[in-house]
Simulated scan of single mutants.
Amino acid sequence: MDQTMPHTVATLAADLDKLGLSRGDVVLLHASLKSVGFTAGGTHAVVQAFLDALGPEGTLVVPTHTPDNTDPAVWQHPPVPEAWWPVIRENTPGFDPARTPSRWMGLLAEAVRTWPGAVRSDHPQVSFAALGAHAAAVVAAHPLDDALGERSPLGAVNRLDGKVLLLGCDHDSNTSLHLAEWRQQEPPRIRTGSSVRRPDGTSHWVTWTDVDPDESDFGRLGADFEATGAVSRGRVGSAVARMMRQRTLVDFATEWMVTHRVGANESAAHS
């Protein structure tokens, strides 16, 4: 898209308003900052545009996941030698919401995480950070064994009737779809582990069992959801933006998975 003038806090906030983001909303943002295009003030300005659009009564939520703090036995991108596994488990600094940076979540998520007043959940693998009126409520509870379920920040956004905004990215980044996985009757489960920080500052490795996440069909699921007309599409800066009500998305995805995952698995078992 041609951009004759830089984007600004004001023009981005106006784009968000046109898309349907309102003052007082709770919004879970997934973003590719590069896709927004040149903005006067860079990352800082983009965050400020969201805060201006939401107002002091609104809440901005971002994923601040740490996939490098997982069991090295299952790493694939890239894998590491088996001899390294115990060294990694024993020496990785324990997750600390205040210190541990996110990984692969993008510059915008990191900017929100480190913004004055931001708070972050304490899950060592899939934490979320939030700014605004409901931020503390969103991140207050995040049990190890309900990473992306009802008791997680995703569940909190759902209870608050929040929105999901995909900014320059697609549904394979749409973390809320995992909430639908956790709602399945008997989802596949997996043993996992991470390094966590004790109150005295030392670290130790902990393990637990939770739902095994599967993003392989999120693109197809998202396309089917968009076909219902429930997604608001527009431009925020130079980025293609898709916004949707999280409850509508997750309810659709929950039923979709019953048909396309459970049904597909049963068909394969009887073939």
Rank of each mutant, 00 (worst) to 15 (best):
R183K: 12
R183W: 06
Q184D: 12
Q184N: 08
Q185H: 12
E186L: 14
P187I: 05
P188T: 11
P188K: 13
R189Q: 14
R189P: 05
I190G: 08
I190H: 10
R191V: 11
G193L: 09
G193Q: 11
S195I: 00
S195Y: 00
V196S: 04
V196D: 01
V196I: 15
R197Y: 03
R197D: 01
R197C: 10
R198D: 13
R198E: 10
P199M: 12
D200G: 05
D200V: 02
G201E: 02
G201T: 02
T202C: 09
T202F: 06
T202I: 05
H204T: 02
H204N: 03
W205Q: 02
V206T: 15
V206S: 10
T207Q: 14
T207A: 07
T207Y: 03
W208A: 07
W208G: 07
W208I: 09
T209H: 06
D210L: 06
D210Q: 10
D212L: 13
D212I: 05
P213E: 09
P213D: 09
P213A: 07
D214M: 10
D214T: 09
D214Q: 08
D214S: 09
E215F: 04
S216V: 06
D217Y: 10
D217R: 13
D217S: 12
D217C: 08
G219W: 08
G219Q: 11
G219E: 09
G219Y: 09
G219H: 12
R220V: 14
L221F: 03
L221N: 04
L221D: 01
L221Y: 02
L221Q: 07
G222H: 03
D224V: 04
D224M: 01
F225K: 03
F225D: 00
E226G: 14
E226S: 13
A227N: 05
T228R: 13
G229S: 09
A230I: 13
A230Y: 13
A230W: 12
A230M: 11
V231W: 04
S232F: 08
S232A: 15
S232Q: 08
R233N: 11
R233C: 13
R233S: 14
G234F: 08
G234L: 07
G234K: 07
G234I: 05
R235N: 05
V236F: 03
V236H: 00
V236L: 05
G237K: 00
G237E: 04
S238M: 13
S238D: 15
S238N: 15
S238R: 15
S238L: 13
S238F: 03
V240D: 09
A241I: 03
A241K: 00
R242A: 14
M243Y: 00
M244W: 00
M244I: 03
R245W: 04
R245L: 07
Q246D: 06
R247W: 07
T248A: 07
T248F: 01
L249Y: 00
L249H: 00
